[in-house]
Amino acid sequence: MNYWLVKSEPNAYSWDDLVKLGRDHWDGVRNYAARNHMKDMKVGDLVLFYHSVNEKAVVGIAKVVKEYYQDPTTDDDRWVVVDLVPERKLDKPVTLDQVKADERLKEMILIKISRLSVQPVKKEEFDIILELSS
């Protein structure tokens, strides 16, 4: 199993939106690195759901339920989506400031390449985020 983090502006698409839909495709990615990460996602992988902009916090965990396919929001075949379902909301959000303050997370891509909207997460990092959320 692999672990990932996806970022969304909560005023455009929030954790609550995913929960309300129950299942949705992750669309609109127009960055090659992020797209390539989506192509590496496998059914069953767990995904940290991060609210960007004002909130800047991991708020939930989703699961990949369908591997990549053509993004239905564009005819350009370079872009793909994956399907996600919400697994659970975190007991308390884990803020970017908390991530930056935790020495164990100093190599996390969220800190190093902050604008990347889909990024891999190491299992150890995933577990630390869960620890910080309880």
Rank of each mutant, 00 (worst) to 15 (best):
A34I: 09
W26D: 03
P10M: 06
Y68H: 14
N31M: 10
R23Y: 10
S52G: 11
K63R: 15
K66G: 01
D75P: 10
K100N: 04
V65A: 09
D102T: 04
D91P: 10
H51Q: 07
D71T: 08
D77V: 13
K20Q: 15
V80D: 02
L5D: 03
V65M: 07
A101G: 05
V85R: 02
D77M: 10
D17C: 12
A57H: 03
V29L: 06
E107Q: 12
R88E: 09
R88T: 13
T95K: 02
Q98A: 01
L48P: 05
K100E: 02
V85Q: 07
V29F: 04
E103C: 00
W15Q: 02
L84V: 06
Y3E: 07
D83S: 05
V82E: 01
N54A: 11
S117A: 13
P72L: 06
G44L: 01
I109K: 11
V94H: 00
R88H: 09
L18C: 12
I111V: 15
I111Y: 05
E67F: 02
S52T: 15
V81S: 02
V80M: 04
M38P: 05
P86K: 04
D17E: 14
K7W: 08
T73N: 12
M108H: 03
K112R: 13
S8Y: 10
K112T: 15
R35S: 13
A33N: 10
S8T: 15
D75T: 12
D77G: 11
Y50A: 03
M108R: 01
R104Q: 05
Q98P: 00
L48E: 00
P93Q: 02
L5N: 06
S117F: 05
L105D: 00
I111C: 02
G60Y: 03
D17Y: 11
Y50C: 06
